[in-house]
């Protein structure tokens, strides 16, 4: 009897991620959501530039590789010509919150009916550990070797809070994947984000607080602890926008 198997929506290509990186978990949660909703055949994913650049090899659905930060615009094009397909983007913090901020904000304010999986690990991983828009105050990176100096480079951007200030986006939630309980919540959130799209509710963004043991200079285990100790206090988990729930309350 099989008790645990790979989701159908993941290919057999071995993931290239570093040991202890939680991208693999998030990929799996996305694939499980696609499987559970039975939408594999009509889903098109958009991969970013960053660590998950090769996500197009890992999902069995049709995939598009976007330029750095442009995934929400590419997804907009895809959704506008195929409104009955399911379009998701998978983006990191540099991609979504730095170079692609305009695309992110405007897709959100159009309430574009797409699903965005936003992986926030507070660092540029692919290029070797530079400061991200979400790097924490004092965080040491290759381009903030003396720690992030908030007087010269400012404070981190809390994407979920910021986007929630917009009236239009349908659903925004921040989750983490550093322990079993958080993974379970993340799964629920990601499933909901895809379900919202199938039900044509509009823009859903799930911010997943993730790890980067390699560039944080921590063991995988310590990296998971660091999420609890440093990341989550700055990036509190929870639902930031749920227009579905708001509508229910008003009734």
């Amino acid at each position: 009897m099989v008790v645990f198997k790979k989701p159908k929506s993941l290919t057999d290509v071995p993931l290239h991620y570093c040991p202890g990186c939680t991208h693999g978990i998030i990929h799996r949660l996305v694939a499980e959501a696609i499987d559970e909703l039975g939408i594999e055949g009509k889903t098109v994913g958009v991969a970013p530039v960053g660590c998950s650049v090769m996500a197009y090899d890992y999902f069995t659905c049709d995939m598009v590789e976007a330029a750095h930060g442009r995934a929400p615009a590419v997804a907009t094009g895809l959704k506008r010509c195929m409104p009955d397909n399911v379009i998701f983007t998978y983006q990191g913090d540099g991609d979504l919150a730095s170079i692609g901020m305009a695309e992110t904000v405007h897709a959100a304010t159009r309430n574009e009916n797409i699903t965005i999986i936003f992986v926030n690990n507070a660092i540029y991983g692919m290029t070797g550990g530079q400061m991200a828009p979400t790097s924490l105050p004092g965080q040491v990176t290759q381009t903030s070797p003396y720690g992030r100096d908030v007087n010269t480079v400012g404070l981190p951007i809390r994407v979920s809070e910021m986007l929630s200030a917009l009236d239009a986006p349908y659903y925004i939630e921040r989750v983490a994947v550093n322990n079993v309980k958080n993974v379970k919540n993340a799964k629920k959130a990601i499933l909901k984000a895809f379900k919202n799209q199938v039900e044509k509710k509009g823009f859903s963004l799930i911010e997943v607080v993730s790890t980067c043991p390699t560039n944080w200079g921590l063991t995988p285990e310590k990296a998971l602890q660091w999420v609890d100790e440093k990341m989550i206090p700055y990036y509190p988990l929870g639902v930031y926008k749920d227009r579905g729930a708001e509508a229910k309350e008003e009734k």
């Binding site: 598009v64 330029a67 442009r70 907009t76 895809l78 305009a102």
Partner: peptide
């Protein structure tokens, strides 16, 4: 929102 976005929307539709 910009010419940059416009051409990437084009990229999406062209891909489809």
């Amino acid at each position: 929102e910009s010419e940059v976005s416009a051409i990437n929307m084009v990229y999406g539709v062209a891909g489809a």
